[in-house]
């Protein structure tokens, strides 16, 4: 199980979701991915995408106008 990061800053929804989706397609179940975004819409869209596709949001927070979401690949 490995940890990965994804920079989705400056892209607007749904691009952060698409980038997350494409990155997760390369990962293994159990891996974690930390996504950093500047579009606050990602705070609802990425968890919604995770719920329907069977991944788990471990943690999410906003810091200095950035949204950081950590996902465990399902």
């Amino acid at each position: 199980m490995s940890h990965f990061t994804l920079d989705a800053r400056r892209s607007l929804c749904p691009m952060p979701v698409i980038k997350t989706q494409d990155k997760i397609a390369e990962l293994q179940a159990g891996d974690t991915l930390e996504v950093t975004c500047t579009d606050p819409g990602a705070l609802s869209d990425i968890p919604a995408w995770c719920r329907i596709n069977g991944h788990i949001v471990k943690e999410s927070h906003e810091k200095n106008d950035e949204v950081v979401i950590t996902i465990q690949v399902g």
Partner: peptide, 20 residues
Amino acid sequence: PKRNNALWSAEQLGIKLHII
């Protein structure tokens, strides 16, 4: 906050959604 309605629809349906 505005939801993404395509994701919302998929969640209502309980199906996977591929955004391309």
